[in-house]
Simulated assay, not measured.
Amino acid sequence: MCSNVNNFVRLVVILCLVLEISTKFEWTNIKCSTLDNSFCTIEYCYIKPINRTYKYVSLKVNLLKTPVTKINFAVYKWANGYLPFLYNLTVDSCRFLKNTDANPIAKFFYELIKSHSNMNHTCPYDHDVIIDKLSTDFLSNQFTNVLPVPEGKYMVKSNVFAYDILRARVDVYGTIS
């Protein structure tokens, strides 16, 4: 009986210590490229460090033709090179925006950028796409409270398709510690 109580106390102490651990996300790089200049151009795509602890990402894509029909995103984790980690999804962008609850994984990633972008309505998108000042603080909170993610270096590859042709790519790199 005494050993069961000791084991229980140890478990409670370990759980308390685990709950005190916080996750910190930090941007390390962003690469944006257009594969079809007649479809879209990238006006800007950068990480802006404000100080040692605060950075944000901003991105503006000028859509010259519409619509974007599919978006593929895949998460990679560093382990002697970037290897696939958990998710590789392709979603029909207009169908997804009509009902974001239909795909909870895509919804999680959409919610990461929704409040910092102009992508807050359903199709058709006939204007530029902007992500403005998406901060590391906001993402740290999401990766701590919403979806705990193990420490490591990560890359999220996003491929944008129109009419089943790859038109643009955005690769975002970060670390979680």
Rank of each mutant, 00 (worst) to 15 (best):
I71K: 13
V75G: 12
V18P: 02
C40H: 00
T100R: 10
S93N: 05
Y46T: 05
L89Y: 09
P67L: 12
E20D: 01
M119G: 15
N118G: 10
Y46H: 06
I50L: 15
L19P: 00
L35I: 07
N80D: 08
K48Y: 03
N120H: 13
N103M: 13
L63K: 02
S58M: 07
V68D: 03
F138K: 12
I105A: 10
K133N: 15
K31Q: 10
Y54V: 05
T122K: 13
T100C: 11
N103P: 11
N62G: 04
I21L: 00
V61M: 02
K133L: 07
R95E: 04
K60D: 04
D137N: 12
D132T: 11
I50A: 15
S33G: 12
F39T: 01
L64C: 02
E43N: 01
F109S: 09
K31I: 09
T53S: 09
H127R: 05
P124R: 00
K133S: 12
D101P: 11
R95L: 09
L134D: 12
P84T: 11
N80Y: 05
D101N: 14
F85C: 06
L83M: 14
C45H: 01
T41K: 01
Y125W: 06
L19I: 01
E111F: 13
N120I: 15
C32L: 05
K114Y: 11
I113R: 09
K98A: 03
N88L: 08
P84V: 05
F108T: 14
N51H: 06
P84Y: 08
A102R: 15
N62Y: 00
D92N: 13
I71W: 13
Y82L: 13
E20W: 05
P84H: 12
C40A: 10
K77C: 09
P124F: 01
Y56R: 09
